[in-house]
Amino acid sequence: MSEMNEKLVFDRPQAVIDRPTHYCPGCHHGVAHRLVAELLEELDVVEKTLLVTSIGCSVFLYNYLNVDAVEAPHGRAPAVATGVKAARNDKFVFAYQGDGDLASIGMAEILHAANRGERIAVVFVNNTVYGMTGGQMAPTTLIGQKTTTCPEGRCLEREGAPIRMTEIIAGLGGTAFAGRASLDSVKNIRTAKKYIRKAFQCQLEDRGFGFVELLSACPTNWKMTPLKANERIADAMIPYFPLGVFKDVTEEGGEC
């Protein structure tokens, strides 16, 4: 086939910078990044976006998105985003956090930002493990799941149960939207995009705090092939972390 006949049918969103990512094969951060980038474009907020990145594999999100960004200390992204929004109320502010960052060290910050109804959005990528530091137990690690700090598998009696964040966030007064989606199938990815759109719109429409949890694979730290890791999401994660919308005030036309 000659070059002349080649037709581009699927391009990167312009909000994504054209460079290879550092993510491992089969990692879902790339999919999540792409959904976020598509929505920034579709909602026409690229130029007014201020991104807050967190600590973990996704810290380099700022290298891949063509938006202004600030790096938050571990777990503090919702507090930093609160400060960013307080300073630049006319901008679109969102944070992107992993499960160790958000559900462990950053538990206080995420709960209080949501409860205050900060006009920010948080994209929460849950892959049940600390990725960047080498696969340690996370607050979302499933019972029985082996990690480098629970080598015999997470034990309910010893380490407690994995935390379902979206359900908790949905219970807070300032939350306008809270939903959990998964990145393991085309259908689920479409739903994920719908949820992120809702979470983003809550800010643009001044309704309240927007929150989306994305169940994601970490083949490297799960010690699985990308395909097996993908299957694990449906087999093990979704039964414990049910998908769906847990709060949506936009349905009632309300705000927080």
């Binding site: 938050a72 200390p73 507090a79 609160t82 960013v84 307080a86 300073a87 910050e109 709960l111 205050r116």
Partner: peptide, 26 residues
């Protein structure tokens, strides 16, 4: 301006970080 009573001193200082990154006197 905006006044926020933070959930902790940790959070307050990080909010300051966010506002300062925006070039606002905070």
């Amino acid at each position: 301006g905006r006044f926020v009573q933070a959930e902790s001193e940790v959070a307050a200082a990080n909010m300051l970080l966010g506002a300062g990154a925006c070039g606002i006197r905070a």
